[in-house]
Simulated scan of single mutants.
Amino acid sequence: MTDHDEAPALRPLTLAWVNRQLGPGERIVRTEALHGGITAEMRRLTVAAPDGGTRALVLRSFVDPYFVKHAGDLLNREADALAQLAETDVPAPGPVAVDPAAAHCEYPSLLMTRLPGRTVLTDEGLQARVPLLARQLVAIHALDPADRPQRYKAWTTADAVVPAQGSDRVAWAAAIEVIRKPAPPFEGRFMHRDFHPGNVLFDLSPDGSAGPRITGVVDWVQTSWGPADLDVAHCSTNLALLHGPAWGLRFAEAYEEAGGVLASAAGERLYWLLLDALAFAGQVGPVVRPWQEAGRAELTTRAVEERLDAYVISLVDALS
Rank of each mutant, 00 (worst) to 15 (best):
W172P: 02
G208R: 07
T113W: 09
P185L: 03
P206H: 10
P100A: 14
A101L: 13
L133F: 12
P206F: 13
P145I: 10
V138W: 03
V170E: 15
A173E: 14
A101Y: 08
Y152N: 08
D99E: 10
G208T: 07
L110A: 01
W155C: 04
A102I: 03
P185E: 06
D194S: 05
T156M: 09
H196T: 04
V178C: 11
L126Y: 08
D203G: 05
L111C: 06
G166N: 01
R151N: 06
S109G: 02
S209C: 05
F202Q: 02
P145W: 11
E177R: 15
A146P: 01
H192P: 00
L126C: 08
L111P: 01
G125Q: 09
G198C: 10
P182R: 13
R118I: 02
D194R: 06
Q150S: 11
T119Q: 10
F190Q: 07
L137M: 15
G117K: 04
P182E: 12
D147H: 12
T157I: 06
C105W: 08
A146W: 00
A102P: 03
D207G: 00
L121P: 01
V120W: 12
D203M: 05
A146Q: 11
S209D: 07
V178K: 06
F186M: 09
F195S: 02
G94M: 10
G94A: 15
A103D: 13
L204G: 00
A128C: 01
Q136H: 06
L121W: 03
G188Q: 12
Y152L: 14
R193F: 14
D168A: 11
L111R: 02
Y107P: 00
D159R: 13
P108M: 13
G188H: 08
N199V: 05
L126V: 08
E124H: 09
T156C: 14
P197W: 09
V161M: 09
S109P: 03
F202T: 04
A103G: 13
L201H: 10
A128E: 14
W172C: 05
F190M: 14
D144W: 01
P131F: 12
Q165E: 15
L132G: 01
R169S: 13
V162M: 12
P149A: 05
R118W: 01
G188R: 13
E124I: 01
V170K: 03
E177H: 12
D123G: 14
A146V: 07
P182H: 10
L115V: 10
S167F: 09
A134L: 04
P95Y: 02
G94Y: 04
I179H: 06
S205N: 04
T122Y: 03
P149D: 07
D203A: 15
L121E: 06
Q165K: 10
P95W: 01
S209F: 02
P197D: 08
M191L: 15
V200P: 00
P206C: 12
P163I: 10
L133K: 00
L137G: 05
A173V: 00
G188D: 14
W155G: 02
D207T: 06
P116R: 11
L121V: 10
A175W: 01
D203N: 07
L204D: 05
G188E: 14
V170H: 11
G198E: 11
L115I: 11
V138E: 06
